[in-house]
């Protein structure tokens, strides 16, 4: 593995607000893989994501994105780095005053000098690809939750980022829509070579898309590996997560499994 193969690297990272919610995080994501960041509610995975994408300075350690130190850069330099990434937020973060087409076209209009016909074609193609053909002129408020999530994915991917972050892309959606979003993410990886870092706790999505997963619990990185490896883990928190066992500290032989 060469240095170029690593597109995201966290070194002894501590994240949080007043005090760390996660500490001593060492993490690497390789080009072309889909890496899931797992953890229960409040485990700090979304805070970690905010730190990785430059929104929340780390309490300690460093974040390297596409080979560059996120917090070693400032202003335009960090802006240039962020343009090589895309982020789909948990709450879609679409601009309510704009149509869906304008939301998706925003990065193209602001960051490139592409002719308007090409921008229009890119937007139509991407919206059609995520299943929103014909809804270009609707506003976010006129779409369902699943449609808004897909529009957010379209916007995050419109510049063909090398690295894309998705925070809970299929949370709260029905299984069919969630499966559609998973398929879209796999398609982006296959067609555009996008590396994906996905924050989620949807087991079905994790099994469907992730090559590798990293699990956080009790303020630390608890386990890392392929989905099969994590599924077989004897760590109580990892076992509880993958086998849906109630209560912290559940063991494979101990607490009652709610479902499998």
């Amino acid at each position: 593995m060469t240095a170029d193969d690593v597109v995201l690297s966290c070194r002894d990272l501590a994240v949080g607000y007043d005090r760390p919610v996660l500490a001593h995080i060492d993490l690497e994501v390789r080009r072309g893989e889909i890496c899931a960041l797992l953890g229960g509610s409040g485990s700090g995975k979304s805070t970690l994501l905010r730190t990785i994408i430059g929104l929340q300075p780390p309490l300690a350690g460093e974040v390297f994105v596409l080979g560059e130190s996120m917090y070693g850069l400032a202003g335009d330099e960090r802006g240039r780095l962020l343009r090589r990434t895309g982020t789909a937020f948990q709450q879609d973060a679409l601009f309510g005053s704009m149509t869906i087409a304008d939301n998706v076209a925003l990065p193209l209009r602001e960051l490139t000098r592409l002719p308007e016909p090409v921008i229009g074609e890119m937007v139509r193609m991407r919206l059609a690809r995520v299943g929103l053909a014909g809804l270009e002129h609707r506003r976010p408020a006129q779409l369902s939750g699943g449609q808004r999530k897909r529009a957010a994915l379209a916007r995050a991917s419109i510049l063909d980022p090398e690295l894309m972050f998705c925070d809970e892309p299929s949370a709260g959606l029905d299984p069919v829509v969630a499966a559609g979003i998973d398929a879209t993410l796999l398609e982006f990886r296959a067609a555009l070579g996008i590396t994906l870092v996905v924050v989620t706790h949807e087991l079905a999505s994790i099994r469907a898309i992730a090559d590798r997963a990293v699990m956080f619990a009790d303020g630390e990185l608890r386990a890392s590996g392929t989905i099969d490896e994590l599924s077989r883990s004897r760590d109580p928190d990892v076992y509880g997560f993958f086998h849906r066992v109630a209560d912290q500290g559940a063991t494979p032989n101990g607490r009652r499994a709610l479902a499998t």
Binding site: G120, E121, R124, M125, R126, A128, R129, A133, G134, E136, H137, E187, A190, A191, L192, G193
Partner: peptide
Amino acid sequence: EQHRAALALAPEGSSASEPV
């Protein structure tokens, strides 16, 4: 191969790709 994969992103059929 990469060309085919990327071109597959363009929606099939005319209805989806026709401009409004």
